[in-house]
Design a protein around this nucleic acid. Structure first.
Length: 460
RNA sequence: GGCGCGGUGGGAGAGUGGUUAUCCAGCAGACUGCAAAUCUGUGUACGCCGGUUCGAGUCCGGCCCGCGCCUCCA
């Protein structure tokens, strides 16, 4: 089976072949650590987590690099606003990011470089660009001269004239050409800065990714991922910097971009006030539910997050875990990832189709009659879930999860009431039995009488 | 203005020429003391108008609507 990916560079699906056989280098633009991660930050992390897991299954050596941007004017602004030291803010935010992504079941990348640890390499790359005539110093800034790169605009499908015509932002007077972008800018004493041949300053936005991807994956590498909105200018400029610094050698070979996420059909933004942080969602639902919801739309499609999104994801996972729970005492037989699931994922990460196949596997498990059939079906469902980073927890734990802030009912108390109800049922006192069941239901505890045994779950 | 994306049944969301997507919700049945869960069956769809074709949600053209990007937002 071949992996097919939609390559933004060519605007079509292409069979993925790594530069070196069995070895894949994979770079994803990570977060700027100035605030808690919101669900828009979570989408690329989860999409590329699925890709990472898939690559690991098909290639012997995969190197996944995802950076942490810890120098940025938004960070400076947030620190000033909160009266917090910049180092504290980035440390705290990075840690929160790690916790949140772990809660969503995302594997950590192999390498997580920080921009501030690579300043020297950035300075070296900028110096090289100046030396090769692709950058110039003006008014304390170093700017990349877009006109020196004939191919500029290929990724985003833009040409310089259009860029200038559409420019919304005032053009800095020191630029030779309005499309030129900053590689290095001067820092006032109160904000972070590093010594450089052009004075104390800080890097522009794009140079860090060019530097860090090059440092860990080489000048030319396989896959570069990120959100759609990064295509221009960020990724376009990364290409310009890297190609020009590396004498025209190709940069990333496959560009993979995830679509945007809207909240109630609107763009998520602070001014609308509809920014949903991962942390908030984790109060309402398990990380796995958020993950499932996120994967239920194809990664290139826009994902509309509404009040229904989590509810529906929960219902679907309930069904899957119900099937596993009912086969709880059946040992699962080790199985390969079912063909339908893997084929869907290999086809440009078609997670909705994979999720649909998951539902089919759950039905098969529900319908299995013999122990052998059940063990087989259970093994397949678990293997399929693992491929997507789902279904790995104990079904009992899944059904006993409580949202934050809700008063938990003690498990032994629930068991005690169930025993009382059983006693009443035995005595055919159904009125009392139903009273107990209704009382529990009012507290969110749903009972199921299965095969002479009563089990419970929290409606969540 | 330029470039690009999308409009599928009550809801979510697949499907790129002919065959049930799937799941939730609804309805009916089986099971159950009654439920729940599960199983079985079932209704509702392809923005609009043309065209190509034996046949189009699926290809082509036009139109309407929504959305994204166009210098630092994933």
């Amino acid at each position: 089976m071949e992996l097919v990916l939609y390559n933004t560079l060519t605007r079509k699906k292409e069979v993925f072949t790594p530069l070196r056989p069995d070895e894949v280098g994979f770079y994803v633009c990570g977060p700027t650590v100035y605030d808690l991660a919101h669900i828009g930050n979570a989408r690329p992390v989860l999409v590329f987590d699925v890709l990472y897991r898939l690559l690991k299954r098909h290639f012997a050596q995969v190197t996944y690099v995802r950076n942490i941007t810890d120098v940025d004017d938004k960070i400076n602004a947030a620190a000033a606003e909160k009266g917090e030291a910049i180092g504290e803010l980035t440390k705290r935010t990075t840690q929160a990011f790690h916790e949140d992504m772990a809660a969503l079941g995302a594997l950590p990348p192999d390498i997580e470089p920080r921009a501030t640890e690579h300043i020297a390499a950035m300075v070296a790359m900028i110096a090289r660009l100046i030396e090769k005539g692709h950058a110039y110093v003006a008014d304390g800034h170093v700017l990349f001269e877009v006109g020196t790169m004939p191919d500029y605009g290929r990724l985003s499908g833009k040409n310089r004239d259009e860029l200038i015509a559409g420019a919304r932002v005032e053009i800095a007077p020191y630029k030779k050409d309005p499309a030129d972008f900053v590689l290095w800018k001067p820092s006032d004493p109160e904000i972070p800065g590093w010594e450089s041949p052009w004075g104390r300053g800080r890097p522009g936005w794009h140079i860090e990714c060019s530097t860090m991807s090059g440092a860990y994956l080489g000048e030319t590498f396989d896959i570069h991922g990120g959100g759609r909105d990064l295509v221009f200018p960020h990724h376009e400029n990364e290409i310009a910097q890297s190609c020009c610094a590396h004498d025209g050698k190709p940069f990333a070979r496959y560009w993979v971009h995830n679509g945007f996420l809207n909240v109630n059909s609107e763009k998520m933004s602070k001014s609308i006030g509809n920014v949903l942080t991962v942390r908030t969602l984790l109060q309402q639902a398990q990380g796995e539910t958020v993950r499932f919801a996120m994967l239920s739309t194809h990664y290139r499609q826009p994902l509309n997050w509404s009040d229904e999104t989590l509810v529906q994801a929960k219902e679907k996972l309930d069904r899957l875990y119900t099937a596993l729970r009912q086969a709880g005492d059946v040992p699962s037989k080790d199985a390969a990832i079912p063909e339908a699931i893997e084929a869907a994922l290999l086809d440009d990460l078609h997670t909705p189709e994979a999720l649909s196949a998951l539902a089919g596997l759950a039905s098969a498990l529900n319908k299995a009659e013999t122990e052998a059939e059940k063990a087989d079906a259970k093994g397949k469902l678990l293997a399929a879930g693992a491929a997507l980073g789902l279904l790995q927890q104990d079904p009992e734990a899944w059904f006993r999860w409580w949202p934050a802030g809700e008063t938990q009912l003690d498990a032994t108390e629930i068991e005690r009431l169930i025993a009382l109800r059983d006693k009443a049922r035995m005595a055919k006192d159904f009125k009392e039995a139903d009273r107990i069941r209704d009382a529990l239901a009012a507290k969110g505890i749903l009972l199921e009488d299965r095969g002479g045994k009563t089990i419970w779950r929290h409606a969540g």
